[in-house]
């Protein structure tokens, strides 16, 4: 049977239509596997005119000074203690540097507690880097695309970091519960802490930088099982932060 050239052309066209539909799942799978590469970057480029300007800088600087003064006090205490114990002479922070980035998308109350930052892998941000806002620790980098990076906030369910209470020198685990106040689970049966005590990152941690202020103890549940726990009010408010600093390694 002879096939007319028109029929061949028609078949070719329908095949071309099909290829488009085969390419689409491939593209979407790429988006999924690369944790949003392409889409996040496109959003960063499109939303650039709407990024917050420098008006917030002054407010940020005053909060930053407060943070610095409390941090300095903690660092001095810690340094003195370490020098006494170990004759350690090096400064606590090693070869790290800070990058300022804008929060270009945020979700802090729904299912996901995350920020999208305006700087990414091209600026040297990697997964696991620490994010600091005015007032202390905000979260950790969860993934980075070339132009953007995604921060998992401390309040996100599943976020876990080691912290301690500098006044009583007790360690605990800060666990995000989805609510705006994460839970601090103590490792000891008898935490001698009081509401109002400062919580900071542990000086013994090898993952987090030492002595970053995190929050203030709001209430303590001594009878909680398996260990006593406390509700922590974070110092850095997720809903108001427009600028953060990423500590890159």
């Amino acid at each position: 049977m002879r096939i007319s050239p028109w029929a061949v052309l028609f078949r070719l066209r329908s095949f071309q239509r099909l290829t488009l539909w085969l390419l689409l799942p491939g593209f979407l799978l790429f988006v999924r596997l690369s944790k949003g590469a392409g889409l996040s970057d496109l959003y960063a480029i499109v939303s650039r005119p709407f990024w917050p300007g420098s008006a917030q800088r002054e407010w940020l600087q005053s909060a930053y000074q407060l943070e610095q003064s409390s941090k300095l006090r903690l660092l001095e205490q810690d340094n003195a203690r370490l020098r006494d114990l170990l004759e350690l002479k090096k400064a606590a922070t090693g070869s790290t540097s800070l990058i300022s980035a804008t929060v270009i998308s945020r979700s802090y109350k729904g299912w996901w507690h995350q920020f999208l930052l305006s700087k990414g892998a091209l600026n040297g941000i990697q997964k696991g880097d620490v994010v600091i806002g005015p007032g202390g620790l905000v979260g950790k980098i969860e993934s980075a695309t070339p132009l953007t990076s995604r921060v998992k906030l401390l309040t996100a369910p599943g976020s876990q970091i080691g912290v301690w209470v500098p006044r009583t020198k007790q360690h605990g685990m800060l666990i995000g519960m989805g609510t705006s106040r994460p839970q601090l689970v103590f490792l000891e049966k008898d935490p001698r802490v009081l509401p109002g005590d400062l919580v900071s990152t542990s000086p013994a941690s090898s993952i987090m930088p030492p002595n970053l202020p995190v929050g203030v103890i709001q209430s303590i549940d001594i009878r909680a099982l398996p260990a006593p726990s406390a509700a922590i009010q974070l110092i850095a408010p997720s809903e108001a932060i427009d600028w953060v600093q990423v500590q890159i390694r």
Binding site: L29, V31, R32, L33, K35, G36, L39, W112, Q114, E142
Partner: peptide
């Protein structure tokens, strides 16, 4: 797939 790529997992 798209929304999973855009969330922290």
């Amino acid at each position: 797939l798209m929304l999973d790529g855009l969330s922290t997992g």
